[in-house]
Design a protein around this nucleic acid. Structure first.
Lengths: 80, 80
DNA sequence: GCCCATTTGTACGTATGTATG
DNA sequence: GCATACATACGTACAAATGGG
């Protein structure tokens, strides 16, 4: 599911996107040690810029929910 | 003293700038509860983009060394 | 080893919004 | 109203790492 984001709302787009992805992780739609959609895919899926995508992913990285690997992708964090 | 950054070196500009500012804070050249130079000033002083300046400041914020206050400035963290 | 596509990382430019003074 | 300053968000380009052919 790609719930639309609301550019008009008070919540920044990056925060909205982070929340969407966080929910998918918590719900198990995105599984541990499996890749999150690429930045390009997320851009196209949600109609936002890469800056916004990367800001959202940064939030999730800081929460320890995902791990980015250069040249490969961004993965849902595993057990450790 | 505005040590030049090295765009050719292996260390990212934002990391170099963060290190310069961190050193100034630790050395007391930038004092607690006093403002760090503005993003614009840092851009001009070091000849880097706003993104680079903001990235450097974000690093310092995450380290708890500075606190950004919207509409005012970025301040060296105080004791409490 | 080399080229190429993909993906994340870094860097810069610009515009607009929001808050303070 | 205006200037300053941080926050968000759009765009572009190139570098670096990975993996397939």
């Amino acid at each position: 599911m790609a719930a639309d984001l609301d550019p008009e709302g008070p919540v920044p787009l990056y925060a909205q996107l982070a929340e969407v992805l966080r929910a998918q992780i918590v719900a198990g739609e995105l599984q541990p040690n499996r890749p999150v959609p690429s930045e390009l895919t997320l851009q196209q899926t949600y109609g936002v810029s890469r800056d916004t995508v990367r800001h959202a992913l940064r939030v999730l990285r800081e929460e320890g929910l995902v791990v980015a690997v250069r040249g490969k992708g961004t993965y849902v964090a595993g057990q450790g």
